[in-house]
Write a protein that binds this DNA or RNA. Structure first.
Lengths: 214, 214
DNA sequence: TTGACAACATACCGGGTAGTATGTTCATCA
DNA sequence: TGATGAACATACTACCCGGTATGTTGTCAA
């Protein structure tokens, strides 16, 4: 506690690095991003980064972890929420979409991390760290899948394969990280309207009724 | 014509390189893929690749172009198709999804190319080549958007922002390039069933009617 | 005041990679 | 049949990047 100020300064510096790294990873991908790139964005040099993170892979992992941390926080208010599953699902979905918009660089990094893990582009040691992060991410996804199945039982959703439905749903809810970019003079209400459109689309897709047109 | 055989052999070798390159780009991304990686996958050396393509960027561009070429071919049967726009849309959408599944490596490369272009990760000279390819891809997307708007006029679809609707639709229809992978013993009918689920989801999302639940 | 340490910056090294320059082989054609 | 060039393989270079080893500076506790 006596060193509270010092620690706070150090933590702030760490988070600045994470933010810069997330933006770089978003703009150029993992491999194409050099440590010097991240340092340059900070107006600093490699020394600063390697003082806080042992390696590039570790830096990336921390960006991933931070991104998932704030995702869990955004979803926390709806854990164990009473009432119809569909209502809870809508609240969760909108919170998720807004999160994608508000913290795009970190969410792109999470996406990158999942991709890298799927194609096994990691060394055996990094593998254990990655496995933990992927498990972390799966726990997050499980909250949605659970609500999804519950809503189906309550008759609000009707889909065949839960796994495909889940993939399509996440694809929709995550998609703003690829196509959203802020407009000049955009208000918070505008952003919420976009989020609502995304959630509506997903909801419509999850209670398909047609399919009779061959 | 006298050299038809020779040309055919050369073309075949070229396409083999394109296929290997597409797979490598899919598995490791653009930057992390080395020319030696592609050569190794072919059981060859760099010489073979640089004999057919002047640079790594050009190789990638040709993979992109080939991917779009076969996309246009897959959609050709439905150009100017008569009848309701919704029916045409469903045919086009299903053809697109099947194409994503059948030629995944090339489609992932196209995705990569669009991402690279969006973040301007190209040299000025490559820029003109890329601009052409992106325009090529936009022409492809325009076929869908046109049908989309027509279907809305006919009352089959109802969405607010055409641009967001288009983004969400393509996100859905493209998504198999990220999550689909062939199962052992999978029949063509199984694949078509998956494609139908994807198309149904997109259709449901495009004619949302709810949204009254806040 | 002083030593000690955190928080960086600077200088450097080794491995990997895009691209090139130069063989080598084999089919084709005059 | 000999020459020519396509279709590669081999050998090499220059450069970039991850990582390390070593300064330098400001701050805080004693």
């Amino acid at each position: 506690m006596a060193l509270g100020v010092r620690e706070h300064v150090a933590d702030s510096s760490r988070i600045d690095i994470l933010r810069a790294a997330a933006s770089c990873f978003m703009e150029r991908g993992y491999t194409a991003t050099s440590i010097d790139d991240v340092a340059r964005r900070l107006g600093a040099t490699k020394g600063r980064i390697y003082h806080h993170f042992p390696s590039k892979a570790d830096l990336f992992a921390e960006v991933f972890r931070y991104g998932m941390d704030i995702n869990f926080e955004a979803l926390a208010p709806y854990r164990g929420m009473a009432g119809p599953a569909l209502v809870r699902w809508r609240r969760m979905a909108k919170a998720h979409v807004l999160q994608m918009i508000d913290t795009k660089p970190f969410q792109r990094a999470v996406w990158l991390g999942v991709e890298m893990h799927l194609r096994g582009a990691t060394t055996p040691e990094q593998r254990t760290v990655f496995n933990e992060l992927i498990a972390y991410r799966d726990r997050y996804g499980a909250q949605f899948r659970e609500t999804l199945l519950q809503a189906r039982e309550e008759g609000a959703f009707r889909f065949d394969s839960p796994s495909i439905a889940s993939q399509l749903m996440f694809m929709t809810l995550n998609s703003p990280i690829f196509w959203y970019s802020p407009r000049t003079g955009e208000t918070r209400a505008d952003i919420e309207a976009i989020a609502d459109q995304v959630v509506d689309y997903a909801q419509g897709g999850l209670c398909k009724e047609q399919g009779t047109l061959k």
